[in-house]
């Protein structure tokens, strides 16, 4: 029996098979994807493979590539043993946690206010969306001026802080803790727009009948918010958390523009750490290994986020047999 099967498999396909396949014109269904697949290979797969290859080399950019040699997982071991990598990673998570939390709370609050119908609603929506559209470099430059010791932020804070005996000359960019919060606040200013937009569409998608049904059953505004609106907004919340966390973990622009990682390395994020290793210290292999490790870490986080999102969506499906 096995022999017969092997013979059948070994039989070469007749040319008629190919001609028949071509005659079906299936090839035309594949043609539109050639561009997409080509782009994928060129822009994603190739650089990714190259990064992995480089991460296995001992190669410093100030020496010719011919002198680079394969050294296995040595770079990975070095990255794992490098305390600065872990410090930068921890700091990035701290920045991301603080910034994303603030962005979620503020964006949710603004969307909650704006989703109700009132005069001038569109104007407010436009205003709240502007920060997202500003180029990050411009945001960094603007905030570096706002944060100057004698700048507008300290001047605004002075009348509020002075009565409490606090000197309103916060060194926003040169005190380690203040510099960290300076970066977080700049990120919050720019990206609250995005969470606002996500929540606004989330509120708009809530079926009004559900809220009406709860009203008829005697639920108060708070009960409706707590028991109907908030749980139904979970998918929007998950989307906002996933998107913003992904972005915040790549925080780079503000750290470079406002503080250049300083004072000391108090604002050095993981993206900035990678950039430094590669472009300042020319440690290409080390940088590549660190970025591969980072990719693995972030991918698992994102996968977790998407799993949550899919689960939430499945729970909110409409009953069957209707419509």
């Amino acid at each position: 029996m096995k022999l017969v099967l092997a013979e059948m498999e070994a039989t070469p396909k007749r040319p008629a098979g190919l001609a028949a396949w071509l005659a079906q014109e299936r090839i035309f269904r594949l043609v539109p994807f050639v561009m997409v697949e080509g782009m994928f290979l060129l822009l994603l797969a190739l650089p990714f493979a190259l990064t992995i290859y480089i991460s296995l080399l001992r190669w410093r950019a100030n020496r010719p590539f011919e002198q680079a040699y394969f050294q296995g997982f040595v770079n990975y071991a070095r990255v794992i043993a490098e305390p600065e990598f872990w410090w930068s990673l921890g700091r990035t998570f701290y920045f991301a946690a603080a910034a994303v939390t603030l962005e979620l709370v503020l964006g949710f609050f603004l969307a909650m206010l704006v989703h109700q119908a009132f005069r001038g609603r569109r104007l407010y929506i436009t205003i709240f969306l502007i920060p997202m559209m500003v180029v990050p470099v411009v945001v960094g430059y603007n905030f570096s001026m706002i944060y100057v010791d004698s700048g507008p932020l300290n001047q605004i804070l002075a009348p509020i802080l002075t009565p409490f005996g606090v000197t309103a000359r916060i060194r926003w960019l040169s005190h380690p803790l203040a510099a960290q919060w300076a970066i977080i606040l700049a990120d919050v200013w720019q990206w609250t727009s995005l969470t606002f937009l996500i929540f606004l569409s989330g509120f708009a998608a809530l079926p009004p009948e559900l809220i009406n049904a709860a009203r008829v059953m005697g639920a108060s505004r708070w009960q409706i918010f707590r028991r109907i609106q908030l749980p139904l907004l979970k998918p929007a919340i998950v989307i906002a958390v996933v998107i913003r966390t992904m972005e915040a973990l790549k925080l780079f622009d503000q750290a470079v523009l406002l503080t250049f990682g300083g004072p000391g390395d108090s604002t050095q994020t993981i993206a900035f750490f990678l950039w430094r290793q590669v472009w300042q210290f020319n440690k290409y292999g080390f940088g590549a290994a660190a970025s591969v490790l980072l990719l693995l870490l972030l991918s698992s986080l994102i996968y977790g986020g998407i799993y949550l999102l899919v689960r939430e969506r499945a729970l909110l499906q409409q009953p069957e047999g209707r419509g």
Binding site: N212, A213, V216, G218, I228, K234, L315, P319
Partner: peptide
């Protein structure tokens, strides 16, 4: 308010809370 009228309502799409 609707909740104070002591009535019940069945909506066109039933409005069951999906969560």
């Amino acid at each position: 308010e609707p909740g104070e009228r002591h009535l019940g309502m069945v909506f066109q799409n039933l409005a069951l809370f999906p969560h």
